[in-house]
Amino acid sequence: MTLISDAMSITRPERGSDGVVPPTGFTARLTQFTAAGMAFLAVFALALSMATERLADRWGEALAQSATIRISAPSEQRAAQTEAVLEILGATPGVAQARALDATEQQALLAPFFGPDLPVETLPIPQLVEIVTAPAGFDAEGLRLRLRAEVPGAVLDDHTAWRRPLIAAAERLSWLGIGAMALIALMTAAMTTLAAGSALAANRQVLQVLRLVGAQDGFIARAFVRRFTFRALTGAALGTLAGMLAIWSLPEVATGGGFLTGLGFSGAGWLAPLPVPFLTAVVAFLATRMAAFRALRAIP
């Protein structure tokens, strides 16, 4: 701690209000500690928010651009119906690509549920046709009606029904992360206000004397603002670093399909927590400034 204090005293100007306001050691250090804790939590909230956003995007993208048609037909009609479906799809605007899955692909899809040794060929498993949609999408209702009329065994599954609530949940979770960050910012402001307020109250006599010898409010406030802002900045920097290290050391969530995501940052996402210390400093700056001017208004 002395090292940090010494390093800080270098940044102190020779003159100015820092020299005339007595040290605010304990409350300032309390602010530093709070800022560190808040920054640590903020990094987690940020990670949560970004991870769920990523999740929602991934689900949205992966599912929005694909749909499936299931063809349940007696094996002798299967090939013909598949053929008919592909023909209809070829004529449907908004369908970029349509392809019948082969046996190996179908087996791979079922493997997570039944194991790799499933004899797909011998089972009455529906034939799947994968549709990749053009960005504009297609008219699902129209296609459904047409399929019902021409290929009775075919059922269109465009995923929207179960995709929506999942994405909504992920988005809500993402907002929760943002809300948590806002709450953390507010709590930082409240804590700094309390700490600065107590430092100001403890130094009431000093403020009085300074006013009597002609100090302007801004001059007096600056001493407190400098100290609390600096403490908040250094505290939050340590907290952010600790938070990033903690997230970095979380075990990787390895998922085959990449459908799920771990709580963490990826790539440039690691830069996202870097503004946390500066935002904390800004919050502390504003909170201390307001507290100082309010305290000074009571002094003639």
């Binding site: 003159r15 209000s17 020299g19 005339v20 007595p22 300074l210 010898v213």
Partner: peptide
């Protein structure tokens, strides 16, 4: 310039810095 009956110094600063206080708060270099 005011001489207060109860003097009113800053107790954490020595006499010289107290005497120079009006200069300090006026932003002058001691």
């Amino acid at each position: 310039g005011v001489v207060h009956q109860d003097c009113r110094f800053l107790d954490h600063m020595n006499l010289r810095d107290n005497v120079a206080l009006p200069l300090s708060v006026a932003g002058e270099s001691l």
